[in-house]
Design a protein around this nucleic acid. Structure first.
Length: 492
RNA sequence: GCGGGAUUGGUCUAGUGGUUAGGAUGUUGGCUUCCCAAGCCAAUGGCGCGGGUUCGAAUCCCGCAUCCCGCACCA
C-alpha cells in the first residue's frame, strides 16, 4: 500500500496523529502516538531487545534528554552540526553557503571553512541567488539543536540531537562497574530532537523522534577477532556499493572485502536478522555503503540500511564506524580517562586501548512506518483492508466476540475475555454484526479473533479465526490461553 | 526556507455572499441477526486560526498555521 493509505489508517485508528492539533499554532514535525501506535512501538522495541540487546549481551541505559553544553562542544555538534547558510535578499531562498560557493566556482570548498572566507568568495566571484539573481546575505549559521536554558540563571544546555552521546559520556563508569571486556555494545532507546528546517511526511521526518542506538566499543586492532561471527556467517546480506549490488553471505562479504571486517559484518547481520522478523519485505531492503561525501562528519565507514516504500527509499538505520572520534573528544574535554585494558596484539599481553566505536543508529518512527506500509494489504476479494502484522507485533492480539449478543453468549465471551486479558492484549466487542467486527480487527492488525457461538454453550469450545486466511479452527476454552500464547510467541 | 495546491463532523464529501450548513460512512444505544462491513429506529458530531470588506462571510480579501506536491535541506 502507499503513504496515503497508511496515513489514513494511522489517523482514523489512532496509530499516530499531529501533536497539539486543536491549536492553530501547532508546529510541524511533532506527532503523537495513539494507543495502537504505542503498543506497536513497544512490541517493536521488545523485538529489538530480544534480537539485538539480549542476543548480543548488550548493556542498556536510559540517559537524560537534556545535556550540558560541554557535551556538544566535545562531540563536535556545536561546530559541525550547524551549516553555513546564506539567504537571498530578494526571494528569501536559503542555501548551504559552502555548496553554493563550491558549485559557482566549480571547486571543492573545505569543510571547516570560516564564514568570513565564504563571504569573501561570494564577493570575489560575484555569486548571486541561482533562482532570481538577487543579492545574497552574509553567511550565518543554522544549528539544528534545540537550545534550552536551565535554572534561574538560564544556563546553556541542549536537547540531545542523537541519543548516543550519553553512552559515550557514561562509558568509563559503565565499563568499570559492569566488568566489561572489549568488544562491548551499549544500547539505548529514547527521544532525540532536531530542529529540521522542513519536517515532512508525518513519521518520516520529525523534529522529535525516537532512536534505538547501539554503540559497539571495540579494539581497532582486533576487528576480525569476533568469536560470535560463526552464528551469522550464513546470513544473506544485500549490499550496495560503488561496484553495484552484492547478495552474499556475511562470511563471503568479509572474505571478498565487500565489508571491511568481521565486527561490522557481524552487527550488520544481527540487524538484518532483526528486520527480517519485523515484517518488512527484505527483498525491498539493502545496506548501502555511503560515498565519502555522504557520510556524517564523524564517520570513516558508513552503511545505511534502507527500505523501499511508496515515497522512495527510506534510511532506517545509519551504521557508522566512528573510530575514536567520540571517546577521544570527551576524554580531551572532560579529562576523564576513557582508555581500557585489552589484549595488545603485538605480543598477546594486555595494554591500554582507547576503544573505537561502531554505531547502529535506528530511527524508530521510520521503521514503524515501513512495517505499516509493507504490512497493509487491500484485500479486494474479501472487501477489506488487512494489516498483516506479525502476531508478536500486533497492538491488539485477540478479539473476543460473541457471535450474537443474546442467550448468554455475551456473558460467556466476557468470561473468556477476563480470563485472557492479563496475559494477552485482548479486546471484547459485541456491537453490530460479526462480519463488521472481524473487519475492524483486520484493519488494526489483530491476528486472531475468538468467537463464542451456540456450540460453545454446549461443549465448551470456541472458534479461533486467523486474520490472513479468515479460516477458523475450534479450540477448547481450557486450551485457549496456551494455544494463543504459542501463536503469539516471539520468533526463536 | 522557496514556489504551487489544499483545509467543511472521526473519515469522505455537497455547498462561490442570505442554507435550520446537506449527504455518505463511522461511532453509540435499541430491535433484529449463529460466521465475514445485511436491515430497521434513534442519537452523536463540523466550516483550521486571526484580522478585514459587507446590513450579512464556510463562501470575497489579507496574514498565520498545518497538510500535500516540486525544489532546497536531511549532521
Amino acid at each position: 500500500m502507499n503513504y496515503d493509505a497508511v496515513t489514513d489508517l494511522a489517523l482514523s485508528r489512532g496509530f499516530y496523529f499531529p501533536s497539539c492539533e486543536i491549536y492553530a499554532d501547532a508546529q510541524a514535525g511533532f506527532w503523537e502516538y495513539g494507543p495502537l501506535g504505542v503498543a506497536l512501538k513497544n512490541r517493536y522495541i521488545e523485538l529489538w531487545r530480544r534480537e539485538l540487546v539480549r542476543r548480543d549481551g548488550m548493556l542498556e541505559i536510559d540517559g537524560s534528554q537534556i545535556m550540558s553544553k560541554s557535551v556538544f562542544m566535545a562531540s563536535g555538534h556545536l561546530n559541525s552540526f550547524n551549516d553555513p547558510i546564506v539567504r537571498c535578499s530578494k526571494c528569501s531562498s536559503v542555501y548551504r553557503a559552502d555548496r553554493l560557493v563550491g558549485e559557482a566556482i566549480n571547486a571543492m570548498v573545505p569543510e571547516r571553512i570560516a564564514d568570513e572566507e565564504l563571504d569573501a568568495l561570494i564577493l570575489k566571484h560575484g555569486i548571486r541567488c541561482p533562482k532570481c539573481k538577487g543579492e545574497l546575505s552574509k553567511v550565518s549559521r543554522f544549528n539544528m539543536m534545540f537550545r534550552v536554558s536551565i535554572g534561574a540563571d538560564g544556563s546553556e544546555a541542549y536537547l540531545r540531537p542523537e541519543t548516543c552521546q550519553s553512552i559515550f559520556v557514561d562509558f568509563a563508569r559503565l565499563f568499570k562497574i559492569m566488568r566489561c571486556k572489549l568488544p562491548i555494545a551499549i544500547a539505548q532507546v529514547g527521544k532525540s530532537f532536531r530542529n529540521e528546517i522542513a519536517p515532512r511526511q508525518s513519521l518520516i521526518r520529525l523534529r522529535e523522534f525516537y532512536q534505538a542506538e547501539i554503540e559497539v566499543f571495540c579494539n581497532p586492532r582486533r576487528l576480525d577477532d569476533i568469536d560470535k561471527f560463526d552464528e551469522v556467517k550464513d546470513v544473506m546480506l544485500r549490499i550496495q556499493d560503488s561496484d553495484g549490488i552484492h547478495e552474499v553471505k556475511a562470511s563471503e562479504a568479509v572474505s571478498k572485502g565487500i565489508i571491511p571486517n568481521r565486527l561490522i559484518a557481524y552487527y550488520l547481520s544481527l540487524l538484518n536478522e532483526f528486520y527480517s522478523k519485523t515484517g518488512i519485505d527484505m527483498s525491498r531492503a539493502r545496506f548501502r555503503r555511503l560515498a565519502d561525501d555522504e557520510k556524517a562528519f564523524y564517520a570513516t565507514v558508513a552503511y545505511d540500511f534502507e527500505v523501499e516504500t511508496s515515497v522512495g527509499w527510506l534510511e532506517l538505520v545509519a551504521c557508522n564506524y566512528r573510530s575514536d572520534h567520540d571517546l577521544k573528544g570527551h576524554m580531551q574535554a572532560s579529562k576523564e580517562n576513557m582508555e581500557v585494558m585489552d589484549i595488545d596484539d603485538s605480543d598477546g599481553s594486555s595494554g591500554k586501548v582507547l576503544p573505537h566505536v561502531f554505531e547502529l543508529s535506528m530511527g524508530i518512527e521510520r521503521s514503524l512506518y515501513c512495517i505499516l506500509e509493507h504490512s497493509l494489504y487491500d484485500d479486494r476479494e474479501n472487501d477489506r483492508l488487512v494489516l498483516r502484522l506479525k502476531p508478536y507485533l500486533a497492538p491488539i492480539q485477540v478479539g473476543v466476540l460473541p457471535i450474537v449478543k443474546k442467550d448468554g453468549m455475551d456473558v460467556k465471551a466476557k468470561e473468556i475475555f477476563n480470563m485472557l486479558k492479563k496475559d494477552i492484549d485482548a479486546f471484547y466487542d459485541d456491537s453490530g454484526s460479526i462480519g463488521r467486527r472481524y473487519r475492524r480487527l483486520d484493519e488494526i492488525g489483530t491476528p486472531y479473533a475468538i468467537t463464542v457461538d451456540r456450540q460453545t454453550l454446549v461443549d465448551g469450545t470456541v472458534t479461533v479465526r486467523e486474520r490472513d486466511t479468515m479460516e477458523q479452527i475450534r479450540v477448547r476454552i481450557d486450551d485457549l490461553r496456551e494455544e494463543l500464547m504459542a501463536r503469539l510467541r516471539l520468533p526463536s
